[in-house]
């Protein structure tokens, strides 16, 4: 099977799934600077999409627009059938369905690991505390650090903190997980433990959108890779297509720099 057939096959496989995230001509400005220039893309249910590109290409801005941490000025974003507008109720609904993992973890330093994870289920999902705690412990088991439940984030290593952050997002039982450079702030020896958790997650069938520079991860688990530069999506394709036969010159240049 040649590579373009593979891309076509992947597209076919995804074609009959429901749309999870739909972006149409999304524009974003910071003052005079246009960070996103008509970004159009569709991510299907259960898809793992990796977004890569050089610094300042708009990857993080785009992913942050999807749960409205940034406000886009033009175009439409629809997540799971709900359009992102200024309506507060839609934003709350989308945020409780979309989990986000940050580069700097952003755990709550004054709460224990367990409280970090159970806060939102108890107060947003209105779950009883006992149920929320048993779920939190199960999630800590899943990310491999069940023994750290009573500690404070400041007592954990970076890799452990990022795994807690993933567990915290999963506690809301989201349908989509967004990862904004989840391994960029980690020491090299801790990157693997976080990537392992993310790979397990990808295989579990949740929809994932990952901004990362980890090309090994992208090659292994991504359904599609999107390459961005200058606020535009330059090229989209399966990992096979992307790494072995990129069509755009800018993609080739980027790959030659990082591989």
């Amino acid at each position: 099977m040649n590579i373009d057939d593979a891309t076509a096959a992947a597209n076919d496989r995804l074609a009959d799934r429901d749309d999870m995230i739909v972006c149409v001509n999304v524009d974003k400005f910071y003052g005079d600077f246009q960070a996103l220039k008509g970004v159009t893309a569709t991510i299907k249910e259960g898809e793992v999409a990796v977004v890569c590109g050089p610094s300042g290409s708009g990857k993080s801005t785009w992913i942050r627009c999807i749960n409205r941490l940034e406000v886009h000025q033009g175009g439409d974003i629809v997540v799971d059938g709900i359009e992102l507008t200024n309506d507060l109720r839609n934003i709350e609904k989308i945020r409780s369905e979309v989990g986000m993992v940050f580069q700097q973890f952003n755990l709550f330093p004054h709460l224990t690991v367990l409280d970090n994870i159970t806060l939102a289920p108890i107060w947003v999902r209105k779950k009883p505390r006992a149920e929320a705690e048993s779920m939190a412990r199960a999630l800590l088991e899943r990310v491999g650090i069940p023994e750290q439940a009573e500690k404070f984030p400041g007592q954990l290593s970076g890799g452990q903190q990022q795994r807690v952050a993933i567990a915290r997002s999963l506690a809301m039982e989201p349908r989509v997980m967004l990862f904004d450079e989840p391994t960029s702030a980690l020491d090299p020896e801790m990157i693997k433990e976080v990537l392992d958790v993310m790979k397990e997650l990808a295989r579990s069938g949740i929809t994932m959108m990952v901004v990362t520079h980890e090309m090994g991860f992208a090659r292994e688990v991504a359904d599609r890779i999107m390459f961005m530069e200058g606020g535009e999506i330059v090229e989209v394709g399966t990992p096979e297509h992307f790494f072995t036969n990129p069509t755009e010159d800018r993609t080739k240049l980027f790959l030659s720099q990082i591989l």
């Binding site: 986000m100 939102a120 915290r168």
Partner: peptide, 8 residues
């Protein structure tokens, strides 16, 4: 942002 992202 983290508080917003978990839906508080």
């Amino acid at each position: 942002e983290a508080a917003d992202a978990i839906g508080l």
